[in-house]
Design a binder for these strands. Structure first.
Lengths: 226, 226
DNA sequence: ACAACGTATATTGTCAACAATACCTGAGTC
DNA sequence: GACTCAGGTATTGTTGACAATATACGTTGT
């Protein structure tokens, strides 16, 4: 996760990663008032590094802290998930545009290669779950970093994606439309390969828009109330 | 700054605010390897809360930490400032759109009132600096919160604006075009008042685009190399 | 019986001492 | 003279104990 692996891995970093994955995977349910001591014993940590990690997580909006009252995982509503996708739409649109302008040919080739891998997985009808979870993440991850926009990548990779993945784990949403999504991914990469930033932005926005509408539909059907 | 003033203000919060303003105002120069003890004596703090604040700041990208090597304020380049404005363009565009859909009539009235205040200040030719620094910030702040998009507002207010303000203090950029900016602000508010989200988004994007081009021009002229 | 208050407890916030590590200085060698 | 390597030092990371506060419970008064 960390870019160039700062040789020494501090306890606070460890705590941060543990907590983050625990929150994302749903091991720490939202709304729970969870004590620091519980967390310490759970992750074999002491309170110092733990508190530092809690501060970071709070700053990223994954949990909320009330002084002397405790920490709880942020409770999330379905409508907020939709809001997240609206943000993704504009930010990843920008990322796609800049990626088209700035990615190296090698990076584009790699991106196409990952898409082929994903296609193979879907055709074999196994690992659909993988494709939707990690594969999709991988695709968007590459474009975010390919934008060469440090802050943009940081916001997408460090904030938004974790929140989206949190929802995904919790509700196993984003189900369905694997072939559809792959096709959309292909078109986006095509536009990037042709260095057509405007088109790449348009396609990416439409892609995420479609994902959002898919989620909204599920909410309508009452499958997604949190 | 904190939304509903959590009665008790912890030392870590204090440290966080002190450091943030110090960074934004330029009292802590970027690139400086600044020691924890120095900071402690400077802000009358102890290392515990300080470290917690440092973690939060690092998480927000205002400073970088290398284990056992120290903390330094993130050094920023002119090109990265431009990248920031590209992000602002799409995010604030979205904010304007959602604000047009969701702001209360009262909020819109307040927004118009602040614009009148700003105009009076400019006409009196005093407080231009104020208008450009705090006034502009105030305008964008209101729209961000008016979007009713929690995460969007959090990202704009908690991350992007601090970075932009950091640059502003440091280079006293964003100079010029006060009347121009005010006119653009007025048109945006008009669109919001008419509940025309699409237009509000378009105008906001163009507004920030203009600001970005203004900065790029200065960079061309060599006035803004960092 | 219900409400309000005061106390008790458990949890969080804070502090100061200890341990580990990166950087710097100096000597030695090529 | 320049480079390498080793040790010292200062700074950071970590720990455990202490202080402050919010919640919960029991008591008391109406």
């Amino acid at each position: 996760m960390s870019e160039l692996a700062s040789q020494t891995y501090t306890r606070a970093d460890e705590a941060f990663d543990c907590l983050q994955t625990a929150i994302v995977k749903g091991d720490l349910a939202p709304g729970d008032k969870i004590g620091e001591l519980d967390l310490c014993s759970r992750f074999e940590l002491t309170r110092g590094p733990l508190r530092e990690a809690l501060g970071r997580l709070e700053s990223r909006g994954l949990l909320v802290r009330r002084p002397h009252a405790g920490v709880k995982v942020v409770s999330v509503s379905a409508s907020e998930l939709v809001e997240l996708y609206r943000i993704r739409e504009v930010m990843e649109g920008l990322a796609a545009r800049q990626a088209a302008e700035r990615m190296t040919d090698q990076e584009i080739a790699d991106l196409q290669a990952t898409l082929n891998t994903h296609e193979a997985m879907i055709d074999e009808a196994r690992g659909q779950a993988y494709y939707q979870a990690e594969g999709d993440y991988d695709f968007h991850h590459r474009i975010a970093t390919g934008s060469r926009n440090t802050k943009l990548a940081q916001m997408l990779l460090g904030d938004l994606y974790y929140m989206v993945r949190m929802y995904r784990y919790r509700l196993s949403t984003s189900a369905g439309r694997p072939h559809l999504a792959l096709g959309e991914h292909r078109r986006i990469v095509e536009a990037i390969a042709q260095r057509d930033g405007e088109l790449a932005e348009f396609l990416m926005k439409r892609h995420i828009n479609a994902a959002r509408k898919n989620i909204e539909k599920k909410i309508e059907e009452g499958l997604l109330t949190i």
